[in-house]
Design a protein around this nucleic acid. Structure first.
Lengths: 342, 342
DNA sequence: TTGTAAGCGTTATCAA
DNA sequence: TTGATAACGCTTACAA
């Protein structure tokens, strides 16, 4: 099956390629009749323009790319939907690009920017520890969404929209303490995580401190790095170990809802109950936390608002209305059935 | 920031563009020294080739695209991982393209095929009710993965790898019947679903029939079409209605695990228990089914095997080793805690 | 081992 | 309102 090009279409119609191009791209300077004639021929012959050629020639393209690291993370599911809606509402097209766990998202972004003549980029997931020099290689506006950064980084190099992971993490641990828990284990990220993993852990430490509870390193359990991070499986394996160690604790704070669910399963398997024997709390506000039995106490991130604001900031950046900004949304403590007061 | 092209690099290096191209593409006919010199210049200046130009010029490209409809479906998560591994093992590159719920996947495929000079395509999700004429517009090999088709369709137009949805669905309902259940409700797909939704429903009907149980339309509950299909929320809402209708039943068969979990939640909310008051069974074999409380009885699809075979079939097609084939894998009945015998 | 030059399929410029 | 024609940035004969 030979490929049919714009030239072929032009010949069939007995017009020049320019005219065909005009018809395709809804240019004004074209006779309505010739246009509809051309469109008919195109339809009949199933002609589809080659995007590579278009992108090559075009100077810009009204597309926003969303780069997402860890596409399996259910937390991103709802966000993607909102991104798509918002971007299309602005009459831009939306392009979702998965980036591999061990790929550099900036490299991917630069490549894509050239290929698709992007107007803007949203980064989702990952740690995002890049040098300023690297960042400046991106010549289109970009926004980090729900990628909390340790504050030592100078925030003037990029824009972001997220919750204050440290503060919100503090809140839920604070809640646990107020319920009378003193021995609170945490399922945390490996220490090389300088992003949300570190921030949530810091919030945990600070809350304990403020309640006069000494940090017990035996209760700090790190996700396995040979299992995908933040997953149910990881929470399950880590909690099994914790339980087996006979370490004394009344509550487990998992830094994601998925981890929390894995923790619950591990608890059930040892014949114990949630929350009767152990209170379990998560973070994120995933749907499954509501459907789980018991439903999971968590900090709910306002995903919809975050996603909407991300796009708003991005377009403000594109339209040069603003310089770099950092929007922080509050999370909400959702108390459900997986925690009890002592 | 001016864009830097291959010509710029060539000038900087004092060589021709061909030589630079050779360096980039690991061509053999190039002096090692000039090559490393060029690569150094490229690195220093952060030159990144424009993919649109490459794709435009290249005749073919060793890329396989996976088009997926309903990317939020957790069932696809594991498959994607396997696809990526397998494709990279064959030294091809992997491209994941999301297709919108109301987009025509064939159109997307054709466009992409031109743009990226694809070697092959995998379709995941959706109903895939396309005419033969439409199918022939695709000029590269493709395979439908886990997209069961009603058998009236002539299978000589495409290849597929999946389970026998009708047969496996029959098995789990048969199991329920053997456990003494006679009033088995089903959470099924809308009747315009001619794919797995219909097949699984047909399996249910056949199993009941073989057990001499009359089909009770009051127990056939259809997913809401204003809620995303096959989701926990949908199962939850539908089950709430079922329960409120006071219809008599002892078991609920949901045609996906996510639906089953939603069903459980609805049951809990009315103060009833699973499996004591209602047995609940799902389909797919999602991880969450294991972690849920109670763990969910389900038909586990061998996702890894299916994904691997999909790629194998695709490459056989590409290498012209075979003509269209349809591989069927057996699913496995996994009895867990959400069902009991009467 | 290297370089020149001809496309790949579009869109944009400019003249008709 | 139309149509040549020149790019866009790259790969690849072909020639050197």
């Amino acid at each position: 099956m030979k490929r049919i090009t714009i030239t072929d279409v032009a010949k069939m119609c007995g017009v020049g390629v320019t005219t065909v191009s005009r018809a395709i791209n809804n240019h004004p300077d074209i006779n309505e009749e010739t246009k509809s004639m051309i469109m008919q021929v195109i339809k009949d012959n199933h002609y589809i323009p080659n995007n590579s050629a278009r992108n090559l020639k075009r100077a810009d393209s009204k597309t926003i790319a969303v780069l997402i690291k860890g596409i399996t993370n259910p937390f991103f599911n709802q966000m993607i939907k909102v991104f798509e809606e918002e971007i299309q509402r602005k009459k831009y097209s939306f392009f979702l690009q998965r980036v591999d766990e061990n790929q550099d998202e900036i490299d991917v972004a630069i490549e894509l920017e050239k290929e698709k003549r992007l107007k803007g980029i949203v980064f989702l997931g990952g740690y995002f520890s890049h040098s300023k020099e690297k960042l400046t290689q991106l010549s289109v506006p970009f926004v980090l969404s729900t990628i909390g950064m340790a504050t030592e980084f100078t925030p003037s190099d990029y824009s972001s929209v997220s919750v204050d992971d440290l503060k919100e993490s503090y809140k839920i641990v604070d809640y646990l303490c107020n319920q009378g828990h003193k021995k609170i284990a945490i399922i945390a990220a490996p220490m090389d995580d300088v992003s949300i993993g570190k921030l949530r852990y810091d919030g945990y430490k600070k809350a304990l401190e403020d309640h006069g509870i000494d940090l017990d390193l035996q209760l700090v359990r790190i996700m396995k790095d040979d299992i995908e991070s933040y997953t149910m499986e990881n929470g399950y394996v880590v909690t099994k170990e914790l339980l087996a160690s006979k370490e004394d604790c009344t509550a487990i704070y998992a830094i994601s809802d998925s981890l929390a669910i894995g923790a619950c399963k591990a608890i059930f398997e040892t014949g114990k109950k949630v929350p009767e024997d152990y209170s379990v709390a998560g973070f994120d506000g995933l749907d499954i936390g509501f459907y789980y039995n018991p439903s999971i106490t968590t900090m709910r991130q306002p995903v919809k608002e975050i996603a909407e604001e991300t796009i708003k900031v991005l377009f403000d950046l594109i339209n040069k209305k603003i310089s770099h900004t950092h929007k922080i949304f509050p999370a909400e403590l959702v108390v459900r059935d997986s925690t009890k007061s002592l």
